[in-house]
């Protein structure tokens, strides 16, 4: 190996001006995201006395967990002063059925559209594609009327229903495109072997869907957890998600603004999606990269 290196020496690589520019740009972009996050984190551990001094970027002189405790147990959202806890559990209770309903609805629709001979499948897909671009605000009022008529307005059911409806176009397209890559002969073989729509789905297709399910799971958990508008418009008084509690806490608090408590509350609200990213992130990349299914 050394001989070969001597025979054909390579020119040492030099850092070019262009790569320096790219590095500078990337560093700035990273700072753009990191600096506010840094301020958020350090402030949440400071005492109010230090915050009033105004040095935003300084580290806490005395580290304290009090703002975190207060945000979780005692902070007031409106008249209710039991902290973010209630909102957290509401969010969990909203998340689970919304997640199941939206994924179940769109995975089956995507499977049918991709692998079965569905009449008007083309126009239907086009319609779904259009629907994916309709902003929620436009159909918010009709949806409220609809849920009122259905008698579910102001309940978890209504929130899960609206999440499923809104997520369906884009999720169906994602599943459908994923299943389109399954070799047609595989589904032909399954049709000849079993012929049952549900049996083929459960026994053959679902076990092949691991990667894409993780992608969709992450997308949906993030979007349902971070949702504010659906929660605030369709949820009843007792079913407000964490984001709504957070917003109430931050905007309506009387007296001095407890920056440290607000920051801690914001971080608490953001932690669950972050955990999901860290746990499932590896599979997320695999899922996006794995287009074809090899037999």
């Amino acid at each position: 190996m050394t001989d070969a290196t001597i025979m054909y020496p390579r020119k040492p690589k030099r850092i070019k001006g262009r790569s320096i520019a790219v590095l500078v740009f990337l560093t700035m972009a990273a700072l753009f995201f990191c600096v506010p996050l840094y301020v958020l984190i350090v402030t949440s551990f400071k005492e109010m006395d230090q915050i009033r001094e105004g040095a935003m970027f300084s580290l806490p002189t005395t580290w304290t967990l009090e703002p975190w405790r207060f945000a979780w147990f005692e902070a007031c959202s409106g008249l209710n002063c039991s902290g973010l806890r209630a909102g957290f559990w509401n969010s969990v209770v909203i998340l689970v059925p919304s997640l199941i309903a939206s994924i179940a609805l769109s995975i089956v629709t995507g499977y049918a559209l991709a692998l079965w001979d569905v009449k008007w499948a083309g126009p239907f897909l086009f319609l779904l594609f259009l629907c994916a671009f309709v902003p929620f605000q436009i159909i918010m009022y009709p949806l409220i009327r609809l849920t009122v008529t259905m008698g579910i307005y102001g309940s978890i059911t209504a929130i899960a229903f609206v999440h499923s409806v809104l997520a369906m176009p884009i999720l169906t397209l994602i599943f459908r495109n994923y299943y389109k890559d399954i070799p047609p002969e595989l589904i032909k073989a399954a049709i000849m072997d079993s012929g049952s729509f549900w049996r083929i789905f459960v026994e053959i297709i679902l076990p092949m869907s691991g990667n894409i399910l993780i992608v969709v799971l992450i997308l949906q958990i993030t979007s349902i957890w971070n949702d504010y508008l659906i929660g605030v418009t369709f949820g009843g008084l007792g079913t407000k998600p964490m984001t709504v509690h957070l917003a109430n806490m931050v905007t309506v608090s009387t007296g001095t603004i407890s920056y440290n408590v607000n920051m801690a509350a914001a971080l608490l609200t953001a932690i669950p999606p972050l955990v999901i990213y860290f746990v499932l992130g590896k599979f997320f990349v695999q899922g996006i990269a794995a287009g074809a299914i090899k037999g």
């Binding site: 073989a189 072997d193 037999g295």
Partner: peptide
């Protein structure tokens, strides 16, 4: 297809992965 009492072997084998 399932009621025709046939069995088929495909070019790509089409085994369930």
């Amino acid at each position: 297809p399932k009621d025709r009492d046939l069995a088929m072997v495909f070019q790509s084998y089409a085994l369930y992965p």
